[in-house]
Design a protein around this nucleic acid. Structure first.
Lengths: 343, 343
DNA sequence: AACGTTTCCGGAAACGTTGCCGGAAAAGAA
DNA sequence: TTCTTTTCCGGCAACGTTTCCGGAAACGTT
């Protein structure tokens, strides 16, 4: 049985003042006698009083909670974005409520409903892989809910967005391969309908062109983000004529697939084949050999998203949505040659 | 500017009934005319009405939210127990609010305050590494807050606990090494003051004894969970006389440290040295070679913890705390010999 | 001494629900 | 018909805050 927590009433009665006075003392309002204020504060501390935030929320019509809605969080990417969100949200006096959709549109809808029902002040979200209709999100926005998107962006949706410069990241990764002496660079590409994969593909192509390398369509292999498919594609590349001496993988699972395949074929990384991935997470550091990879500023993504959301919450209707693009960094580890070996 | 969401008042006025009636219709109470109920439900749907859960919470003095407090969540372990929590909590109509202490006692206290302030119905928590005084937790419990602990257990605290059978896990890991032909098995141990490390150490020792192996103190190396120290210890083992042919590592970072050290010495896993870890997460699968490891049922830990908490919430003061011990499983991958090579 | 100001405080309504209580109308029983 | 029961509904207080409004007392000014 939950024992009752003390309320401002309890304090008021013990001190023989009104609840208004107690309330004023607690949230240091201007018109209160310093002595009574001190008395209230002391008693509150003694009773271990904690304000009932749900009463406050009801009264003020504001919860000071922001919702974060992610498709999953067992991989490091989303948790570490959330960390960034928490950092700026907490500093601004907001709490963070996390929802997890398990990559299911149904659950995403349900979670968004729940957030609306909990009257969160705003939501930061990355949509599910299977989210292909947006009415639930649009409806929430029509009700005035501020929403900022990240990671999985769709143009049909209004609102602020935080994304990563996929094109430049890919470009630099490929440039690095070229600079370390690779001459035939294959690409394990993502699904063609995603802007993200397209941007990375374009970065790959433009880097080749910028260095007067030919673009060979036969070594651009779409493998849908799936580790198994990446393995098969890599095998195909190894078996084919004119074997590539480098691979640029579109994301983590793909890179892992390539890595195991190469090693199973008894080839050495990076001596026979250099490998660079495009990573969501520091994960790639723990593989052997530690992988050179484009890494995303996950924490910063969360911080930026939170700042945008807080601005929107505070500025209200006057706020005009912004989309911010963050840069990636190429972390050079052991799956490519060191860069000093210049071309 | 947040536009107002519809309330039961709006529905009541449009339908020319009282708010009581609307309320009854919405939470299908018994005494209501099916027709009016349908009318209310229809209009609610049309207006896209969502009940204001914070008003409900205030009124019912129950939030249907359970808090989960973890020291970090960028590694897979905690997120995946949270998944388990969510699964049973959501199924029972509860929402989950997550707090993250960043391994800081200060933040842990603050988060617990916040949960109390939010009037969560209960908390599932794993304390911080630096949590060495428990007054904040005891105070919360004294106020009647149900708390269940997992992963980091301390005897001084009352409440339900969910833990993992470290002893048996270690025992079986070592037994597996013995059965695959290893004859000299070293142990990279954890800090001696933690019951967890002690249990794993005892499992190691007893497995050796059970198979009439000698226990050689000189190849039991405490390395404090730190990857760097594990590397140094492993090097020492490799350099020493009578090199071990197997290593049992107390946790993930330790195992990784051993792995890189062994490979840097040009030795083969498992042919020169077998390696088995004690893992928090499926992490160890992604290393090369994929590591044989004792793995914990992370999801199940969350589910069990949630079930215990929900029972305590519902049974109230009548509930007597329980501690449940879950079993681990040994996942055999490539860092040990296959088991068919029987002794 | 009379006035205006400032300082501090209490009363009360409101936020959106729930749930008790009582009562009117409809239905059933005599 | 008349009485009892059932069915359905409205009024109202309450949950713990915040905040507006008004007023008493203390202070300052002429």
């Amino acid at each position: 049985m939950r024992s009752k927590q003390p309320t401002i009433w309890d304090i008021a009665i013990k001190l023989n003042v009104s609840i208004s006075t107690v309330s004023r003392a607690l949230r240091n309002a201007p018109d209160i006698n310093p002595d009574t204020k001190k008395a209230v504060l002391d008693l509150a501390h003694e009773l271990d009083y904690q304000p009932n935030t749900i009463a406050t929320s009801l009264r003020k019509n504001k919860t000071d909670i922001i919702g974060v809605l992610v498709p999953e969080f067992v991989h490091a990417y989303f948790p570490s974005v959330i960390l960034g969100v928490q950092e700026v949200a907490n500093a601004a006096g907001y709490k963070v409520m996390i929802g997890q959709s398990n990559e299911s549109l149904e659950i995403e809808k349900h979670n968004l409903q729940a957030m609306l029902s909990s009257r969160v002040d705003g939501v930061i979200m990355a949509i599910t892989r299977e989210t292909n209709e947006y009415e639930h999100i649009l409806a929430a926005q029509r009700k005035g809910l501020p929403v900022v998107f990240f990671n999985r962006i769709v143009d049909e949706l209004p609102g602020s967005k935080v994304l990563v410069d996929d094109y430049r990241g890919a470009f630099r990764a490929v440039e690095h391969l070229i600079q370390t002496g690779c001459r035939r660079i294959a690409h394990l590409a993502g699904p063609e309908n995603l802007t993200m994969s397209r941007n990375r593909l374009n970065g790959y192509i433009d880097a080749l062109k910028a260095h007067q390398f030919p673009v060979d369509e036969s070594i651009i292999m779409p493998c849908d983000f799936i580790e198994g498919r990446a393995r098969a594609c890599t095998q195909q590349l190894l078996d084919g004529p004119n074997r590539p001496d480098a691979l640029f993988a579109v994301n983590d699972p793909t890179a892992i697939g390539a890595l195991v395949c190469i090693q199973e074929n008894g080839l050495s990384i990076p001596d026979d084949i250099s490998l660079v991935g495009f990573s969501n997470a520091p994960h790639s550091a723990f593989v052997t050999p530690p992988m050179t990879a484009v890494v995303q500023p996950t924490n910063e993504i969360g911080r930026v998203a939170a700042r945008l959301l807080l601005r929107q919450i505070e500025e209200g209707a006057a706020f005009v949505p912004e989309t911010q693009t963050l840069d990636t960094t190429l972390v050079i580890r052991k799956s490519t040659h060191p860069v000093l070996k210049t071309v």
